[in-house]
């Protein structure tokens, strides 16, 4: 299919089109409309030419000051980074507990009540469409600055993400196992823990890993809106033009994310070998 999408254009010999014509035409229409939309957006958006010019003048100075590095606040930043990771970790942990049960209520094949499942599904959809920093802004406004605001702010989008992912994984299992257990008199609890959990657990853990990575990322950002951790430090360095410390902060974030990705990849590979 993918190979055949390509047709021999521009050749002087007789053309034999082997592509899927409708898909190709629709792709062309899509490209064209995106191009128009792009030009329209550029025209409509209010970008000040002088701001670009001024910024370009300032850029070399700022880049030069970013090459300086100061280890003055190293320990403080390291502590901040650990707080950031811990906030993400606890948020994922609690969200897992919440979403584990709710996912079984949402999934089509295991929901005890169809309308309950549908209602929860819409609620999840709405929660998910509000970006995480806004949840945290609301949390900070209601319960004050600190890690608790970060954890609660992260829990809502994280739970909704996990519920959506888990329920999709549960639905993939189909109805065979469930019917088999039901037919010998198993209850809903039996279906969940004996029938479905053993097969989907690996997938769930992989999803948790993905979400943890996203949440650490988000948690760095959240510090910038008042949830503690390294983001708060970074934001204050930016505010006071303290570039020497900022450089170190950015490096710490980079190294942490890099190590996290490496270790999560290791865990994923381990899971794959265990499940196969």
């Amino acid at each position: 299919m993918a190979v055949s999408q390509h047709s021999v254009k521009g050749s002087r010999r007789e053309k034999i089109s082997i592509g899927h014509k409708r898909t190709q035409r629709q792709q062309r229409i899509f490209f064209f409309s995106v191009l128009i939309l792009f030009i329209f957006s550029i025209v409509m958006i209010d970008i000040d030419g002088s701001a670009i010019a001024k910024g370009m003048e300032r850029l070399p100075v700022i880049l030069a000051s970013l090459t300086q590095i100061s280890f003055e606040h190293f320990l403080e930043m390291l502590a901040g980074m650990v707080t950031t990771v811990v906030i993400a970790f606890l948020a994922v942990l609690f969200s897992f507990v919440i979403s584990f049960f709710l996912a079984f209520l949402v999934a089509n094949n295991t929901t005890p009540n169809r309308y309950l499942g549908l209602g929860l599904r819409y609620a999840v959809m709405i929660i998910r469409s509000v970006p995480t920093p806004i949840w945290v802004l609301i949390a900070v406004a209601s319960i004050g600055f600190g890690p608790m605001a970060g954890i609660i702010g992260l829990m809502f989008p994280t739970s909704s993400f996990l519920i959506k992912a888990f329920s999709a994984q549960i639905e993939e299992e189909g109805t065979e196992v469930i019917e088999a257990i039901r037919s010998v008199g198993g209850t809903w609890i039996h279906v969940v823990f004996k029938g479905l959990l053993p097969t989907i657990l690996t997938g769930m853990i992989a999803t948790l890993g993905v979400r943890f990575e996203i949440d650490v990322h988000e948690s760095v950002v959240l510090g910038m809106v008042g949830a503690g951790g390294i983001g708060y430090l970074l934001q204050s360095y930016i505010q006071y033009y303290d570039f020497a410390n900022l450089t170190l902060g950015i490096l710490i974030v980079f190294v942490t994310m890099f190590l996290l990705e490496l270790s999560l990849n290791r865990i994923r590979a381990l899971l794959r070998t265990q499940s196969s």
Binding site: I45, D46, I47, D48, M224, I238, I250, M257, F258, E261
Partner: peptide, 19 residues
């Protein structure tokens, strides 16, 4: 690996407040 909001905050310093 650096969140885009951090890039944006840094670029606000360079280009000033705006889109």
């Amino acid at each position: 690996s650096i969140p885009f909001l951090l890039w944006a905050a840094l670029l606000v310093v360079v280009f000033g407040v705006g889109v």
